[in-house]
Every structure is written in C-alpha cells, then in structure tokens.
Amino acid sequence: MKALVIIRLKDGILDPQGEAVRQAVRALDKAKVSNVRIGKIIEIEIDGADKTSAEKSVKAMCDKLLANPVTEDYQIVDIS
C-alpha cells in the first residue's frame, strides 16, 4: 500500500517561506499572485496491509508525528 499525505500550515499562521516565494514569482510573472503557502508531501509505503488497516496506521502516524496539530493540518489524499 502506498499513501500520499499532504501537510499544510494552518490558515492564519505566517508562512515566511511562502511569502518569499510569492515575491519571487511576482517578479517572474506579471500575474498578481496574492498568496503562496508551502507545505509538505509525504509518501509512505506499507508492506502487507489492507487499505483499512493502512489508513488507520497512516492516520496514527499523522496524529503522533507527521503533523503538529498546533500549527498544521494534514490530509491523506490517496491510499492504494
């Protein structure tokens, strides 16, 4: 099983990296880029698990380690 997890900074939390990129892409392109937020994509491969148990494991990993609930939200976008 392979899971794809996206970790995002919560709304309202300043993302200085995203802000630096926003300014850079504005210099690159004339499009009015008003906001850029940068997160993480984590790919996890799990051997010998069915979808339900893999999903449960990935959720536990996100809750315990992969995302910090104080500052981040996570989304398991795919598991197959």
Partner: peptide, 17 residues
C-alpha cells in the same frame, strides 16, 4: 518540549527566514 506537548504552542521558522 513543545513537540512532546510538555509545553504549549510551537516554534516555527523565524519570520525573516
């Protein structure tokens, strides 16, 4: 200690990067 939830809040990248 914040990551371990022994202290509240979190520490993120400096605003200046």
């Amino acid at each position: 200690l914040t990551e371990a939830k022994l202290l509240p809040g979190a520490l993120l990248h400096n605003s200046s990067m």
